[in-house]
Design a protein around this nucleic acid. Structure first.
Lengths: 197, 197
DNA sequence: ACAGGATGTCTAGCATTGCTAGGATGCCGT
DNA sequence: ACGGCATCCTAGCAATGCTAGACATCCTGT
């Protein structure tokens, strides 16, 4: 418990974060397939085995990057929602922010939603940032809407689908704005079955 | 042009298909990470290099599997749509069939939508099965709906999101039926903005 | 002050991956 | 029967994730 061990602890934590940001930067500039343990070690100026004293393996590093990503996503969505003028515009603002996030940080988004991670979703030990991101969607619907969670799930799924299908070229890259418009209009809360009598 | 070279051509085509089905079976029983060129070669009872005389690389094999998958998906959706009693039920039937397909053949679905492939989507040289699958969604909406394609894109995106997020545990596995209900109800054609007066 | 143990780091290596070069083997047409 | 060609396999390469064991460094107890 001496001052020295405290310093070591600090250094260790610093290096821990270094690894995460190095992985993220490398992924964002050259894609995840370029993120190898060797290049990562070189970038942090340590040898490979130190990576394994911080993380259980490469997947764990990806998971750590993804977790950071969820914190940023939650903040990004929250900012968009609170900046919306009327509450009716919040839904559209949050959805647009989500698609922005996905297209501007494709590697980060991949880590969060496509690459295999150890993160636990939708359970008791779900990390707070994940929960916070989801709650931003839930908050776009009225509190008296008893099925807000369902709305949020489907909305999130649709946005994820749009993001990932357009990113991989499976859907034309333009027309995102139209899709957003359509989605928001159709899925806003209000009466459950507005069509059938 | 002798009979012998014809036989060789036949054998070659047969072997071509053998590789594809071997890859698919292996992926479906043990996952794509277990599909290596060595195991594939062993399974087909040839050496590795023959794979490369048929395909440009592993990605091309995955693409071939995916292409087969799109043919099956198109047929599956078409069957569901035509079996629907009333036209109003066609949309729901097709959506349910899509989710069925995704959950019952997860490896095939991965090849089609997640793994990197060489397939060209939404362009002139888009393979017919891809186009056919998409058209099944389009056909669920009325011909006088001028924005059918947009509807189909968003619908497909939402279904893909639901499929992939639940498969990877990012959304609770139960409640699929509720999501389906909600999605179909909200996105069916009919007046564009049923809520606002 | 100094040995002994614990902690941390690196070098070297393993098994596996996708992919390829080069040689051996057989089949065809003349 | 034999030259030429297509086909196929053995062997190997470079790169990957990961680990064992040696080396050094620092803390602790006498």
């Amino acid at each position: 418990m001496s001052a020295i061990s405290e310093r070591r602890e600090r250094e260790r934590a610093h290096r821990h974060q270094m690894i995460i940001t190095a992985a993220r930067e490398l992924a964002e500039t050259e894609g995840w397939e370029a993120v190898t343990t060797r290049r990562l070690a070189e970038r942090v100026e340590y040898s490979q085995p130190v990576l394994y004293s911080h993380f259980d393996g490469k997947d764990a590093i990806v998971s750590a990057v993804a977790l950071d990503g969820f914190s940023e996503l939650a903040a990004h969505l929250r900012r968009a929602r609170q900046a919306a003028a009327e509450p009716g515009q919040a839904l559209r603002a949050v959805c647009r922010a989500y698609l922005e996030f996905a297209t501007e940080r494709p590697a980060l988004y991949q880590a969060m939603f496509i690459l295999p991670t150890d993160l636990k979703f939708a359970s008791a030990e779900t990390p707070p940032p994940l929960r916070a991101s989801f709650d931003e969607f839930v908050s776009c619907f009225r509190p008296d809407n008893k099925r807000r969670e369902l709305f949020a799930e489907v909305l999130w799924s649709a946005l994820h689908g749009i993001a990932v299908l357009s990113e991989s070229g499976r859907i034309p890259p333009d027309g995102q704005e139209d899709r957003l418009d359509f989605l928001v209009t159709q899925i806003a809360d209000a009466p459950m079955k507005p069509i059938t009598p």
